[in-house]
Design a protein around this nucleic acid. Structure first.
Lengths: 215, 215
DNA sequence: TTGACAAGTGCTCATCTGTTCACTATATTT
DNA sequence: AAATATAGTGAACAGATGAGCACTTGTCAA
């Protein structure tokens, strides 16, 4: 376990990491000092020496910007193998879907989500969709939730699926009776939809998961 | 598309990337020159200017080691920023919690979950807990779901929290009235719990998110 | 009260480092 | 043949930068 940092040291370490991220190279002593209102480079230097002694950075003597942030093994061991091997899954998050437009068009991508491969088979090609409306609240799917959709799985009877109906995207439970297809909402205030015009209907994919974020 | 590089320029770009990887900060003009047997810093500088003009690096004027390697979007789009910068969050998933045992003891860890940093503030120390029981179904939290818990946030009035009560872990909505603490289930079949013995009660943390996996 | 420690000031100094200029040389393109 | 881009030398220069010292302040535990 690494030694604990003082608040000041932690703040400085964070600043260095941020600076590095934004600029691609580490800050100078004076830049650090300026950011924290420390007038003397010596004050900054001692913070860095403390950080080095505690194992958070290494400092190249006499080299300008010679600060390297240490990512030690302990830290790395917390990195899942999957990520090291780049076998993680990055899932595009689709925001609002404009009527008629292809779901995965670039304009729709709202962000991305990383999901542990233990949840998703590696090659599976999934995406996330932000839920609008409350027709599935009894299935624990609320407005604003993200549903993870697998377009390669068109769903079986009883599965929750994402369907495209009349250029609108909806999340519903699928019910197939013979040739008839019904979309069942999980909310007593809504009525099941029977698909009549199969030209204007398609199943986008099966819902594999739900992710909700509070606040 | 980026302009093509000469062999020399490519070699220098590669060297800079390697140096950066090994040292954590970029090389100086003289260090580059020394590596390639270029005696004059001016020769090196012109290579860098070429690299900058072609969009491979940016150079901070008058700053030592002010070379930043540009990673353009095309190249990066297959690798999420989060992973490249190792700023992703790996969350331990806690399975069953034995009565009285520390929640985060190793034996309890069931697996791990990777969540996009866009959801969680970087330094936030969270873990995931598998839900047992159905006392929160009206809040969309079902048995078997994973709740993401932030132990640093003890929750405000109305928040959904994880509490430790009589050596049992429960997910409930928090209600504080004056000095009285109530735990409200979100299921009409359950009754609110008023905390009487505060010695046997503690708040584990606030629920920040919910993840459910189907099949 | 004493001591240890974190944090900071103001300053000097040496050297690190990017900038610039004049000049040379070799390909490739026009 | 002339223009252009690439590649390099050697030297001079100024500003950027880390190192070091003596001294001060505030907090906290023994």
């Amino acid at each position: 376990m690494k030694k604990e940092l003082t608040d000041r040291q932690q703040a400085i370490l964070t600043f260095i990491e941020q600076y590095l991220q934004e600029n691609g190279f580490p800050p100078t002593l004076r830049e650090i000092g300026k950011h924290f209102g420390i007038a003397s480079t010596f004050g900054v230097k001692r913070h860095l020496e403390a950080l080095e002694k505690k194992g958070y950075v290494t400092i190249e003597s006499n080299a300008s910007r010679g600060i390297a942030v240490v990512h030690d093994d302990e830290y790395n061991s917390s990195v899942p193998e999957a990520v090291k091997n780049e076998h993680f899954n990055k899932i595009p998050v689709v925001g609002r879907v404009a009527a008629g437009s292809p779901i995965l068009a670039m304009e729709n991508i709202e962000g991305s989500l990383i999901i542990d491969p233990s949840f998703i088979k590696k090659a599976e090609d999934v995406f996330a969709l932000r839920v609008q409306g409350d027709s599935m609240i009894d299935a624990g799917i609320f407005e604003g939730d993200l549903v993870i959709v697998s377009p390669n799985d068109k769903g079986r009877n009883g599965d929750i699926i994402v369907a495209m109906l009349e250029d609108e995207v909806t999340v519903k439970r699928l019910e197939r009776i013979g040739d008839e297809i019904k979309l069942i909402p999980e909310n007593i205030n809504y009525q099941p939809i029977t698909v009549t015009d199969k030209n204007n209907f398609s199943i986008v994919g099966k819902v594999k998961g739900v992710v909700r974020w509070l606040n």
